[in-house]
């Protein structure tokens, strides 16, 4: 759910930019470390970013008749961790604005915050938490993608309610959340299922890679 160009007033554009830049800068620092250690990972990161972009351009079949796009943040976070995913998501969002007119430049900071930071962080925490609790990576990855998506919408609602706090912030948040709950929850479930299908094929075909990235549950490795 991208916030479109011009939708947010200037002050909120700036605030979200500042917050996002700090996190993305940390992500860049992490990527630099990874690339210095294993130079080949630059190609892998670039190709993974391309995959995220392509994924977001696909239409997800939806029950409500509306259509939406998977965003791949849950998968990215489970594979690479949230900081690296934030950087990739930033590039993807710039490409989406310039190649597809999804989102925008003034709202880039806000969109990075909800989709590149909140979503992946939630997905990563859920994933690691469930794995630690001894749950299989397939189930963990479903909840990571589902909750990552859901919290992305919550973050977006939060951002919109802050920008349009009428009559009160709370009432606005409720209004935005209600709309998103109706339209986006089925999509979050959809993304969860899709991620599981991808994950199972990854486990079947590239178990070594998942193991190397440290992305599997201990008993699966």
């Amino acid at each position: 759910m991208h916030i479109m160009e011009g939708y947010l007033p200037l002050n909120w554009c700036i605030i979200w930019f500042v917050i996002s830049i700090i996190v993305v800068a940390f992500g860049i620092y992490q990527i630099k470390k990874i690339v210095d250690e294993t130079p080949e990972s630059k190609a892998l990161l670039a190709v993974s970013g391309a995959f995220m972009f392509v994924l977001s351009s696909l239409k997800l079949p939806s029950v409500t008749g509306s259509c939406s796009h998977p965003c791949g943040n849950g998968l990215g976070a489970a594979l690479f961790g949230p900081a690296v995913t934030a950087v990739l998501a930033t590039i993807v969002l710039i490409f989406q604005a310039l190649l597809l007119a999804h989102g925008g430049l003034t709202t880039l900071g806000a969109n990075i915050f909800s989709m590149g930071i909140v979503g992946p962080v939630v997905a990563w925490i859920v994933y690691k938490g469930l794995i630690k609790a001894g749950i299989s990576s397939t189930i963990a990855v479903f909840f990571a993608a589902f909750l990552g998506d859901l919290l992305t919408y919550v973050a977006t609602s939060f951002q919109l309610a802050l920008a349009f706090p009428a009559p009160t912030f709370g009432a606005a948040l409720t209004a935005f959340l209600t709309i998103f709950a109706v339209t986006q929850v089925p999509l979050a479930i959809g993304e969860g299922i899709l991620t599981v299908i991808i994950w199972d094929r990854l486990k079947a075909y590239k178990p070594k890679l998942l193991d190397k990235l440290g992305a599997l549950a201990p008993n699966e490795a």
Partner: peptide, 21 residues
């Protein structure tokens, strides 16, 4: 549709790993 999309996306993902090589 879901299964086809899942197969499609995971195939692209596996290809993307080859592509990175």
């Amino acid at each position: 549709s879901f299964k086809s999309l899942g197969a499609l996306v995971s195939t692209i993902f596996l290809r993307s790993l080859d592509k990175s090589e």
